[in-house]
Simulated scan of single mutants.
Amino acid sequence: MAQQTWTAVDACFDGLLVEEDEALTAAAAGSEAAGLPAHQVVPNQGKLLHLLARIRGARRILEIGTLGGYSTIWLARALPEGGRLVTLEVDERCAPIAAENIARAGLRDVVDIRLGRAVDLLPQLTDTDPFDLVFIDADKPSNPAYLEWALRLTRPGGVIIGDNVVRGGAVVDAADSDPRVQGVRRFTELIAEHPRLTATALQTVGSKGYDGLVIALVTE
Rank of each mutant, 00 (worst) to 15 (best):
L107N: 02
G83Y: 01
L88G: 02
A199Q: 12
A34S: 13
P195R: 00
V9Y: 10
L62D: 05
R196L: 14
Q124T: 15
S207R: 12
T154Q: 10
L107K: 03
S177Q: 15
T72Y: 11
W74M: 00
H50V: 07
A78F: 07
R180S: 12
D132Y: 03
R108P: 14
F135C: 05
Q124L: 12
A145V: 14
I113G: 10
A95E: 09
P80A: 03
P195I: 01
A76E: 05
A150G: 08
E100K: 11
A199V: 10
L49V: 03
A118K: 01
D10C: 07
N164Q: 02
G69C: 00
Q4H: 15
P123M: 07
K47F: 13
D129E: 15
R54N: 08
L62F: 02
K208L: 08
D176E: 09
N143E: 14
A78T: 05
M1E: 13
G69K: 02
E63Q: 09
G116W: 04
L107T: 10
D91G: 09
L202P: 02
A105E: 04
T87M: 02
Q4K: 13
R186D: 07
Y70S: 09
R60S: 04
S207I: 01
G206Y: 10
A8I: 09
S177I: 10
T7D: 12
P37S: 00
L190R: 03
